[in-house]
């Protein structure tokens, strides 16, 4: 590869990174707007029986048709997406909050606690998060929204701690941190003001991945009937409901699943865009 070639491909990657990020932001923006709308207004009451005929195919009156009780599927999907997104965000807040705090402290201070926690984290991250979450929720008690968020949040802590720990440990002894220390800055200030902003290129993509994992894990748990249960049904529970009506109303399962896919796809594109931004050329 000669020089101009390399420049060309660097330019190309740059352009493509932008399109990744842009596409992701647009898609996620549209979905977020719809979800926000769903909190205040839905075309029909999502739980009203007989809002229309049973198993009506998609039409102008019922954009995504109706289910076995004549409930409007579009309204239900809007509401379910809201439940899914808010659970995922809460889970992310618990997991990322705990993980970043733990990772920052262990990465910056090191020592025996760091050694032990890192080993424990290595063992825990080897297991699939859904398996761990199932263990935690069977201890806390299944079928409760708070327990779902708590169990998933706890399970996501080790992976965030691991990413954060590496980033903080790498910046522990760089010159600007040393000089801040010499100027008498306290540890808390160094961690929050001097190091944390510089770990953003690593942490931001990790947050998008975390969000997606949270959406998928919650959807799986609710699909299995151990997660969120009615009345505040999430997309996962609705999909398990829709599976039973696959013969009569395939659009129900299709629409519900598609919303999960688009949500994860959009945020995934944002993450990929951010990651390329950091790396430059892929």
């Amino acid at each position: 590869m000669n020089r101009t070639d390399r420049e060309k491909s660097a330019k190309k990657a740059k352009k493509e990174k932008n399109s990744c990020l842009t596409a992701g932001l647009i898609l996620t923006g549209i979905l977020a707007a719809l979800i926000l709308l769903g909190f205040f207004w839905t075309p029909h009451d999502p739980n009203a029986m007989a809002a229309g005929p049973k198993f009506a195919p998609p039409s102008l009156r019922h954009l995504l048709g109706t289910d076995n009780f004549g409930r409007d599927i579009f309204s239900r999907v809007l509401q379910g997406a809201g439940a899914t997104a808010s659970i995922a965000l809460t889970t992310l807040a618990i997991g990322a909050g705990g993980g970043i705090l733990l990772g920052a402290l262990t990465g910056y201070f090191g020592g025996l606690a760091d050694e032990i926690l890192t080993r424990v984290g290595d063992v825990l991250t080897a297991f699939p998060s859904i398996l761990l979450a199932l263990v935690v929720i069977s201890i806390l008690g299944p079928g409760n929204r708070l327990n779902v968020m708590l169990s998933l949040g706890l399970v996501f802590i080790p992976s965030f701690a691991r990413v954060t720990r590496t980033a903080f440990a790498a910046l522990r002894d760089v010159n600007y941190v040393k000089s801040a220390r010499l100027m008498g800055a306290g540890s808390g200030r160094i961690l929050a003001v001097h190091i944390l902003p510089n770990t953003a290129p690593v942490l931001l993509p990790a947050l998008t991945i975390g969000f997606n994992n949270a959406v998928l894990a919650e959807a799986s748990m609710s699909f299995l009937g151990i997660g969120v249960t009615p009345p505040d049904a999430s997309l996962g529970y609705m999909l398990s409901e829709a599976q039973g009506m696959l013969l009569a109303a395939p659009w129900y399962a299709g629409a519900t699943g598609l919303v999960i896919v688009l949500l994860v796809f959009g945020v995934g594109l944002i993450g990929e865009g951010l990651r390329r931004d950091e790396k430059g050329v892929l």
């Binding site: 599976q243 696959l246 299709g254 896919v261």
Partner: peptide, 16 residues
């Protein structure tokens, strides 16, 4: 990215 976004249970339902 799209393939990564499809949860196995949805693929399973589509396949069935």
């Amino acid at each position: 990215q799209l393939c990564m976004a499809v949860p196995p249970f949805f693929t399973g339902i589509l396949l069935s």
